[in-house]
């Protein structure tokens, strides 16, 4: 363990903006990608269902 306290951990030795900005961007990017895929799948299934009902 490299850290004395949780605040220490958050401060990242003065590099908080850079380290958390990097990790945050990755989490955000991947989160958005998964979310968009879920929306895309839901849209296709809704279309399929509509087609099923009209036939």
């Amino acid at each position: 363990m490299q850290w004395n306290s949780f605040n220490d951990f958050l401060a990242m030795g003065g590099y908080a903006l850079y380290v958390w900005g990097s990790i945050g961007a990755c989490v955000l990017g991947m989160g958005i990608e998964i979310w968009m895929l879920k929306l895309r799948r839901r849209a296709i299934l809704a279309r399929l269902l509509r087609k099923e009902l009209t036939q």
């Binding site: 990242m12 030795g13 003065g14 990755c26």
Partner: peptide, 9 residues
């Protein structure tokens, strides 16, 4: 220092 931890992503 701690700045290198960006390497992990």
């Amino acid at each position: 220092g701690e700045g290198y931890r960006i390497i992990f992503v």
